[in-house]
Amino acid sequence: MNGVHDMGGMHGMGPIPYEKNEPVFHARWEGRAFALNLAMQAWRKWNIDARRYEKELLPAAEYLRMSYYETWTARLVELLVKSGLVTRAEVESGRPAPGSPKATPPLTADKVPSMLRNGALASRDVPIVPRFQAGQLVRARNMHPTGHTRLPRYTRGKLGTIDLDHGVYVFPDTNAQFLGEKPQHVYSVRFAARELWGEQAAPRDAVYVDLWDDYLEPA
């Protein structure tokens, strides 16, 4: 979707808010909100792409106004309600509905180290022929899907060169909406800064963007 989250190349966002000796969390609630997000993922009711998409669906003005972990909190509530794990009424009252069953958490403290140590692979070990080769000139498609996509607007319609084939990965556009993993090759595509931004850009500079087969066409 052409949302405000897709902000590469925008102006007017102000100075970079650098903080010396920044703590990992600025308040206790930030750590709790962060950890709640990770713990609830263990229910496997949604995937990482659905999680990113849910944040993109926050109203644009709210997305920009909220602090980072506030967006994580708002997104978690939406995912919980959509997945049926809790109801909106339960979130509002802060109490379980009368007579609702008590579950057993899939993520207990003893499982946290192995969960974080193992991570979650997004690559898929399936034999799929790459559509493009390193060194090949390609064009990022001029497409504007209303759902989730990882093709940034600033690359659309632009010419780039395949720098590296990363292998086969889950395709976010379908996975975010539970329409299947549609595994395909992901490439590092080199875009000359002047191709993206015109003569104002430095002549040697470049932006490398990781793009899926479905985002590219031969140039």
């Binding site: 709790r32 978690l76 579950a103």
Partner: peptide
Amino acid sequence: DLTLRVKALESLLVEKGLVDPAALDAVI
């Protein structure tokens, strides 16, 4: 407001048996 909202959400999820608070401590 956020302190209260996150606290309320955590206690709801713990009460429903969806989250183990000790797992949250371990993640943090």
